[in-house]
Amino acid sequence: MSKKTIREALNEALRQEMARDGQVIILGEDVAGGHGGTGVIDAYGGPLGVTKGVIGEFGANRVIDTPISESAIMGAAAGAAATGLRPVAELMFVDFMGVCFDQIFNQAAKFRYMFGGKTKTPMVVRTTIGAGMRTAAQHSQCLYHMFTSVPGLKCVMPSNAYDAKGLLIEAIRDDDPVIFFENKLLYDLACDVPDESYAIPFGEANVVREGGDVTIVAFSRMVHIAEEAAKTLAAEGISVEVIDPRTTSPLDEETILDSVEKTGFLVVVDESAARCGMAADIAGLVVEQAFDALRGPIIQITPPHTPVPFSPPLEDAFIPTAGAVCDAIRKLLK
């Protein structure tokens, strides 16, 4: 056990799984970097450094730098998965799904059902999400809600290093296609992470903080916004329960419903989308299945229905804040 960042935890998970299983490969743009250049190999080690050093340990036959060809990367991963490998493909930014979504949602996601259950597609797509890095509209979205709505895909979004390692190991061992969403702003966040290998099952929410007055469901980086709000409100005598579902597909409905049964109030903090996003999805679930327990309206705290803006004050106004969560809860409980 030692303190590890999410970046380090993911790197460790990849190395441990690649050492355990020779069928695990990594492919993507600059997962090593440097091929064909005048400098060194492993110049990048992944666009954000997650796969650094892995090529040195496992070689270029299993850590495969590709051209900037997202459809070919996703398709190659799906085709390799269906024929006997366990690829971990990297989609540098989730925004780039626009150029390769067919290979994910029409191909990989459909194989098992469309072919009558005869095949497995054990692939992982690691991708990055999240606003806050001043990277503007095409490098800042969350978009996990779009993948969550596709049957056949599993969607995972860790909020801390412990979960990141255990969930990535689970994802690699899983026999279905898994989209693994890493928030860019969380890579350097550290916590205690066991050195040994371990897996965290999908569909089991983490109750980050127990409380009795109001339930917050939050995803990825928004879990930290929710915790910050919970701390502030605790000082005011409001007891907040914070739930991190960790996976949106499958979704641990029971933990959310049980919490709302207890508190009677629900706030969802979600960076994915103002419309048809995870907040709306969770709200729909609770209205349908725990309507009688509700003692007030469900509050959805999301970005506005706009693209992610570039200019710092605009982007800051775009991202949900702990202050906004506190205000909403104070108003709700008044």
Binding site: S71, A72, G75, A76, G79, A80
Partner: peptide, 19 residues
């Protein structure tokens, strides 16, 4: 999907190469 299979097929070829 017209053009759907070439990326998948190179994946099957990648399996042969890696293995």
């Amino acid at each position: 999907i017209v053009g759907g299979n070439p990326p998948l097929v190179i994946g099957a070829a990648l399996t042969a190469k890696v293995k």
